[in-house]
């Protein structure tokens, strides 16, 4: 066992560094997050709307997918302070499976329709989380 440790000392150190960085950045993210005020919706990089999280509603989104021009591509639901997508017309459904978001910085992404939905705070855009 000791020989094995000695032989793979470098490997153990490298993997530990990966784990430490991952766990440290993860705990930092989890500790600094707070409930968001609204969601910001962009299509193809452009802002199309901001919807408050405290208002229960359903919004039809039209993504920028050349195959389904002008159709409703995704349906955004806001309910009890959380936002989620209830429908997507793409095959992979990653955005629907992303589930519910409510903390600033969290987002739902639909790559095929080029839609992003991000939770932001009251004043700022939650940008200081990533900048």
């Amino acid at each position: 066992m000791r020989e094995l440790l000695k032989k793979h000392r470098k490997d153990i150190i490298i993997i530990s560094i990966f784990l430490v960085i991952a766990i440290a950045s993860l705990s930092l993210t989890l500790m600094t997050r707070e409930n968001g005020e609204k969601v910001r919706v962009t299509v193809d990089g452009e802002l199309v709307g901001e919807y408050p999280l405290h208002l229960d509603a359903t919004y039809e989104l039209r993504g920028a997918n050349p195959d389904t021009e002008g159709e409703v591509t995704n349906i955004l639901v806001i309910q009890d302070g959380v936002a989620y997508l209830s429908y997507a017309n793409c095959p992979d459904k990653t955005c629907v499976n992303t589930g519910k978001i409510k903390y600033t910085g969290q987002s739902i992404i639909c790559l095929p329709n080029r839609i992003t939905i991000t939770v932001v705070g009251d004043s700022d855009g939650g940008v200081d989380l990533v900048s």
Binding site: I15, F18, A22, I23, L26, T42, G45, S107, R114
Partner: peptide
Amino acid sequence: VACLLLETNIIVYYLPFLLLSGT
């Protein structure tokens, strides 16, 4: 690639989660 395709940096938020799961 996701950042480039969507012209946004919001996904960077998920990097710590992906670092841990990737490891």
